[in-house]
Computed example of a mutant assay.
Amino acid sequence: MSTPGQEEHSKGGVYSSKGKEFTRDSSYITTRIVAEPRPGTDDHPVEPGRYHLVAARACPWANRTIIVRELLGLTDVISLGAPGPTHDADSWTFDLDPGGVDPVLGIHKLKDAYEKRFPGYPRGITVPAIVEVATGEVVTNDFAQMTLDFSTEWKQYHRDGAPDLWPEHLRDEMAPVMKRIYTEVNNGVYRCGFAGSQEAYDSAYDRLWTAMDWLEERLADRRYLMGDAITEADVRLFTTLVRFDAVYHGHFKCNRNKLSEMPVLWAYARDLFQTPGFGETIDFDQIKQHYHIVHTDLNPLGIVPKGPDLSGWTTPHGRG
């Protein structure tokens, strides 16, 4: 959901006005990829090999899609393109690929896929995005719906034993949990980092830590957010927790304490990190480069810190 252009406060969000709180732009391309396209819609059909997921490892919103793709075993069904951790004001770019060109789409900039479908596309060029390989056109950048559809619409292509990340019998209970995680934690760290006044920052800080304390308490008597099995809710929380000590604690001033100083959340996060499909999607160097180089309004010299020590992620978690 990170977006080039208008500096970081529109990488998925904008300041409502100077001195006010960070407000996220939540308008996305709502086209869906579904098993049975609905008549009269712009739905696209599920089809192996037809789509290319463009998802930067540095971006927490894109990281969700990479994790779910791994957990469900869709790696041979939906190809993955990985932009570099930094981008210019115009677009995410494929700096990590030979010649700076995505090998599947043959483009330098993700913007080309947006413009192919929507000439003069007026909004930010966000990741994650799914692009149709044959046409080179972006299909959707609706990150929240994307992973739910991976779980439900692509089910016939899931690996044997794939987890049910969006279990039907838990959806009514999961929805408010995921909403609170999004508003208070996933977006809450950004609300702290890009607060436009002391008052806005103080309010954002208090909201974040109220939610973090709630999570510490909730996870004290259950292994995962919804009980004994990993769900979409855990994926959504993990991508913020794994970035917390590396960037949010200092860079975004979320510094009441480190994640590693919260016994339950720290053990829970390590448990997920050490679960296949989670930790191998994380590149701490790319994460730190993205936040400290791209956010020139917060870090004008672009200096990337060498710390903190992140070796603790592989230590025993005791949650089994």
Results as ranks from 00 to 15, higher is better:
residue 131 V to E: 11
residue 238 F to S: 01
residue 303 I to F: 04
residue 142 D to P: 00
residue 196 G to P: 01
residue 292 H to M: 02
residue 68 V to W: 12
residue 63 N to P: 01
residue 44 H to A: 13
residue 18 K to T: 13
residue 148 L to A: 09
residue 212 M to K: 01
residue 28 Y to L: 03
residue 310 L to G: 04
residue 135 T to S: 15
residue 146 M to S: 04
residue 25 D to G: 02
residue 212 M to F: 12
residue 270 R to L: 13
residue 226 M to E: 08
residue 317 H to S: 15
residue 218 R to Y: 10
residue 172 D to R: 04
residue 171 R to T: 09
residue 286 Q to H: 14
residue 262 M to P: 02
residue 219 L to T: 08
residue 23 T to N: 09
residue 236 R to C: 08
residue 181 I to L: 02
residue 216 E to L: 00
residue 38 R to L: 08
residue 212 M to D: 04
residue 258 K to L: 15
residue 79 S to H: 09
residue 314 T to I: 15
residue 120 G to A: 07
residue 182 Y to N: 11
residue 16 S to E: 15
residue 320 G to W: 13
residue 225 L to W: 07
residue 244 F to D: 06
residue 27 S to E: 15
residue 158 H to D: 10
residue 124 G to L: 10
residue 50 R to K: 14
residue 73 G to V: 08
residue 21 E to L: 03
residue 76 D to S: 06
residue 217 E to K: 02
residue 42 D to C: 00
residue 302 G to N: 07
residue 85 P to L: 02
residue 123 R to K: 15
residue 4 P to W: 10
residue 247 V to I: 15
residue 293 I to L: 11
residue 285 D to V: 15
residue 4 P to N: 04
residue 67 I to F: 08
residue 36 E to L: 03
residue 314 T to A: 14
residue 306 K to H: 14
residue 23 T to S: 11
residue 259 L to T: 05
residue 203 S to G: 06
residue 280 E to S: 07
residue 132 E to S: 01
residue 241 L to E: 03
residue 317 H to V: 14
residue 47 E to G: 01
residue 19 G to W: 11
residue 91 S to L: 11
residue 140 T to D: 09
residue 158 H to A: 07
residue 248 Y to G: 02
residue 209 W to R: 00
residue 22 F to D: 01
residue 102 D to N: 08
residue 295 H to S: 05
residue 136 G to L: 05
residue 1 M to A: 13
residue 214 W to Y: 08
residue 107 I to S: 03
residue 218 R to N: 06
residue 311 S to G: 06
residue 140 T to G: 05
residue 144 A to I: 13
residue 26 S to D: 14
residue 29 I to C: 04
residue 268 Y to E: 13
residue 77 V to M: 09
residue 264 V to H: 05
residue 302 G to S: 04
residue 249 H to T: 10
residue 271 D to V: 02
residue 109 K to E: 13
residue 43 D to R: 00
residue 213 D to Q: 03
residue 307 G to C: 04
residue 191 R to L: 02
residue 306 K to S: 13
residue 34 V to C: 03
residue 292 H to F: 15
residue 297 D to I: 10
residue 146 M to F: 08
residue 99 G to I: 07
residue 145 Q to M: 06
